[in-house]
Amino acid sequence: MSEYEHIRTMQGLPEIVFDQASDPGRLDAWLPEGLYVRPDDLPAVTVHEDATGRDEPALYRAEPDRLRIEWKTRDGGGYTGWLQVDALDPGGSEVTIHLSFRDAAGQPPREAVDSALRESLDRLAEQVRLRVDGEPG
Rank of each mutant, 00 (worst) to 15 (best):
Thr9Val: 09
Met10Phe: 03
Gln11Asn: 12
Gln11Lys: 11
Gln11Ala: 14
Leu13Ala: 15
Leu13Phe: 05
Leu13Gln: 13
Pro14Glu: 07
Ala21His: 02
Asp23Thr: 08
Gly25Glu: 15
Gly25Pro: 00
Gly25Gln: 14
Arg26Thr: 10
Leu27Pro: 02
Trp30Ile: 03
Leu31Ala: 09
Leu31Asp: 04
Pro32Leu: 02
Pro32Ala: 05
Pro32Gly: 03
Pro32Gln: 05
Gly34Val: 06
Gly34Met: 12
Val37Thr: 10
Val37Ser: 03
Asp41Ile: 14
Asp41Phe: 06
Leu42Glu: 08
Pro43Met: 10
Ala44Trp: 00
Val45Trp: 00
Val47Ala: 08
Glu49Met: 10
Glu49Leu: 09
Asp50His: 09
Ala51Pro: 01
Thr52Ser: 15
Thr52Glu: 08
Asp55Tyr: 06
Pro57Trp: 05
Leu59Asp: 09
Tyr60Val: 11
Tyr60Lys: 03
Arg61Ala: 14
Glu63Trp: 05
Pro64Asn: 07
Asp65Gly: 03
Ile69Cys: 11
Lys72Met: 08
Thr73Ala: 09
Asp75Trp: 01
Asp75Met: 12
Gly77Gln: 11
Gly77Thr: 14
Gly78Leu: 13
Gly78His: 06
Thr80Asn: 02
Trp82Asp: 15
Trp82Ser: 15
Leu83Ile: 06
Leu83Pro: 10
Val85Thr: 11
Asp86Asn: 11
Ala87Leu: 05
Ala87Met: 05
Ala87Asp: 09
Leu88Phe: 02
Pro90Gln: 15
Gly91Ile: 04
Gly91Lys: 07
Gly92Thr: 08
Thr96Asp: 00
Thr96Ala: 13
His98Asn: 10
Leu99Ile: 10
Leu99Pro: 01
Ser100Pro: 01
Phe101His: 14
Phe101Tyr: 15
Arg102Asn: 08
Arg102Gln: 05
Ala104Lys: 08
Ala104Leu: 11
Gln107Val: 09
Gln107Glu: 15
Pro108His: 03
Pro108Ile: 00
Pro109Trp: 09
Arg110Glu: 14
Glu111Gly: 09
Glu111Ile: 12
Ala112Tyr: 04
Ala112Gly: 08
Val113Asn: 05
Asp114His: 04
Asp114Ser: 12
Asp114Tyr: 00
Ala116Gln: 05
Ala116Leu: 09
Arg118Phe: 00
Glu119Pro: 01
Glu119Phe: 01
Glu119Met: 07
Ser120His: 01
Leu121Gln: 13
Gln127Pro: 06
Val128Gln: 07
Glu135Lys: 12
Gly137Lys: 12
Gly137Val: 11
